[in-house]
Nucleic acid binder design. Structure first.
Lengths: 208, 208
DNA sequence: CCAAATTCGTGACTTACATCAATCTCAAAA
DNA sequence: TTTTGAGATTGATGTAAGTCACGAATTTGG
């Protein structure tokens, strides 16, 4: 039952009983910004998710392995990383609270991951399997609508980033990031910001 | 009635009566690769679209104006262009047959366009208004599913392009484009390819 | 058909950024 | 305390690609 199945999880403050309620509220609030649901509907929605906790530096998915889940981030911070043959890491995106993240191509097509998903901080997520995703979309028109809205805005965001890389130099791209996600600059080592912006950490360091 | 409303359109060969049937089939075939529809359903779907024809160099939407439509390309070729203050044009994407294109942010939020959508060739499109889009999504779960699939793959494609710009130099990006859309290289002036790849036309010219 | 505009290629020079390497700080571990 | 290691900074040098300039080839429109 959705209301009970992560009862054993310990909160930072030592509370246990509140956990599922928090998860419940956070995901529900998030979904209901787009698609309000009845209690019964949300119970069925919630039942498709599995709570998991990861520690800093742990992998949620690794290159070459299947991508079993689409992740909703409850707390913490993730990076989606593409690594080139020469071993250089490039950050495709970050994911903080209330963001969805996965290697989508691998997830949707059931192929092996080409990107790894790793924790920058200790992170709590809700995992949604492909079957669960399909079940939600097929069963609840509202949920398909929700995911469509998310996908549309995800696409728009990705297109913005493409425009940014086409039109702006390193300094401008950094300023745009700083403006859009100021909290990232604080929480993340500069070398990761550089790997996201597509510049070397030395160059980024010289931009101040 | 969906079957009749662009009867007056002239085909290249001089045929007229076939036009609507072709449009009918092309959009229907396209949608039914994802979501099969009954004849009645498709009639209602089709009724939301408006046929239009544009000539090379014409604008479908211009910067600063509202974006009234989401466009489905029947034939021809479009470019979605972002222009910087210094007047340089950057190509956000191309759209050929069976592609969907628009300034999505402006379209969905009813704000003014930040990108222009222009014809590279004479182009036939089917125009879908925001009301039409919402009607289709709200009325037909299948159509919401169709647009979700499109949006997901659109996002994946945009993310691929981001990865390409993070990891590859001009030559590699060109080769990737050539591999993925070989027909574009033939149909489009190299200067536009360059504006898409994010290199100067001189540099692109020297890559061969 | 010719004139005008596009398109493409190439040389000379400049620039933004990468790379390599050496410090420097600071916090956590031993 | 000393040690370690991650992160940030700074300098010297190399290189991919931008910019400016010119001209040839091709396409387009009147």
């Amino acid at each position: 039952m959705a209301l009970f199945w992560c009862f054993h999880h310990k909160m930072p403050g030592g509370f246990t009983i509140q956990t599922t309620v928090l998860m419940y509220r956070q995901l529900r609030d998030h979904i209901e910004k787009i698609s309000p649901l009845t209690d019964q509907e949300y119970d069925l929605v919630c039942a498709q998710f599995e709570y998991r906790k990861f520690r800093k530096h742990q992998y949620l998915t690794q290159v070459g392995e299947p991508v079993k889940y689409h992740y909703f981030v409850l707390s913490g911070l993730l990076k989606l990383v593409f690594t080139t043959e020469n071993g250089k890491q490039h950050i495709v995106s970050f994911a903080a609270e209330d963001w969805w993240e996965s290697d989508f191509y691998a997830f949707f097509t059931k192929t092996m991951a080409t990107m790894s998903l790793e924790c920058i901080e200790d992170t709590e997520v809700l995992c949604l399997s492909l079957d669960g995703y399909r079940y939600l979309c097929a069963t609840f028109h509202k949920m398909e609508h929700f995911f469509l809205e998310k996908a549309n805005y995800g696409f728009i965001g990705a297109q913005r980033r493409i425009i940014s890389s086409l039109t702006s130099d390193a300094k401008e791209r950094f300023e745009q990031l700083q403006k859009q996600y100021p909290f990232l600059i604080q929480r993340i080592p500069k070398s990761l910001i550089a790997a996201y912006l597509g510049v070397s950490r030395e160059t980024l360091s010289r931009l101040y």
